[in-house]
Amino acid sequence: MSGDTYSLDKQQLMQRTFDQMESERRETDFSARQKIALTCRILFDNGHDSGLAGQITARGDAPGTFLTQQLGLGFDEISAHNLLLVDEDLQVLQGSGMPNPANRFHAWVYRARPDVSCIIHTHAVHTAALSMLEVPLEISHMDNCVLYDEVAFLPKWPGVPVGNEEGELIAGALGSKRALLLAHHGLLVACTSIEESCLLALAFERAARMQLLASAAGAIQPIEPALGREAHDWILRAQRSASAFAYYARRSLKHHPDCLLE
């Protein structure tokens, strides 16, 4: 290789990497239904299982519609063929069964955030444990900086989120951020793609686990804001999201090849 890169500054090297990643980017040929099913299996394999609790939704092709899983099926049972297409009133348009009634707050988030294409809500155990302390998620490690300045906090539990009041409250608390920690409850991630939502949900639970471990040993020290934002922008790229999602998909498909059946 040429040694010309040794004369470049950090920003030039970062941009060079972004350009190279874009040229090497390979899109997967998974359908939206398959991506949702894969996300369910990926999250199940990475500590987000909580029985029948939690929902994953993604916008449908028609305005005011979204795909979601059937109530009564765990994340490890979701396949592309058993997803439901519902409207904002949670009426089933395609598929059989009923959606989780907590999907109502997803509809409120979609109404408030036209940029959001996929919402994930889980009760992952470390996130749930942190939520019991009524403290915000702290982002203080490079690996977690994909969430730097991206996590809102709802400090009081509004109860079971099946009413319009809870939908308004959750959508308002999320604001313009990509994630939300709900006290005494769990996490919410809302992103522009299924892949990004999946990866941020994984990062959220890992950050919560690290926070609990670190805080048991001492006071967590903050990172410099400028460096946090730099790491955020470095990690949160469509190219990286596509590559990382493909990696997790390969891992899950070794054990759950049935999830792709439509």
Rank of each mutant, 00 (worst) to 15 (best):
M1P: 15
S2P: 13
G3R: 09
D4F: 06
T5C: 04
Y6M: 08
K10P: 00
K10Y: 14
Q12P: 02
Q12S: 06
Q15F: 08
Q15Y: 10
T17N: 12
T17H: 10
S23F: 13
F30N: 13
A32H: 10
R33A: 02
R33P: 11
A37P: 11
I42G: 02
L43A: 09
D45V: 01
L52F: 14
G54S: 04
I56Y: 03
R59L: 07
D61Q: 10
T65G: 09
T68D: 11
Q69S: 15
L71T: 13
S79M: 08
N82P: 10
L85E: 09
D89G: 14
L93K: 11
Q94R: 15
S96P: 02
M98C: 12
N103K: 06
V109T: 12
V109W: 04
R113V: 04
P114N: 11
V116F: 10
I119K: 00
T122R: 09
V125W: 06
L130D: 06
L130F: 05
S131F: 04
P136N: 07
H141S: 09
M142G: 06
E150N: 01
A152C: 04
L154P: 05
P155Q: 03
P155S: 01
P155E: 07
P155T: 01
E166Y: 01
G167L: 05
A171Q: 12
G172T: 10
G172F: 00
L174V: 02
G175C: 02
G175E: 10
A179N: 02
L182R: 06
A183H: 02
H184V: 00
H185K: 07
H185G: 11
L188T: 10
C191F: 02
C191P: 06
T192M: 02
E195Q: 14
C198G: 05
L199T: 03
L202R: 06
F204D: 14
F204Q: 12
F204I: 01
R206T: 13
M210C: 12
L212E: 08
L212S: 03
L212G: 06
A214V: 06
L227K: 08
E230D: 10
H232I: 00
D233P: 00
I235Q: 15
I235R: 08
L236P: 02
A238S: 15
R240Y: 07
S241C: 13
A242L: 14
A246S: 07
R250S: 06
K254H: 08
P257F: 00
L260M: 00
L261V: 14
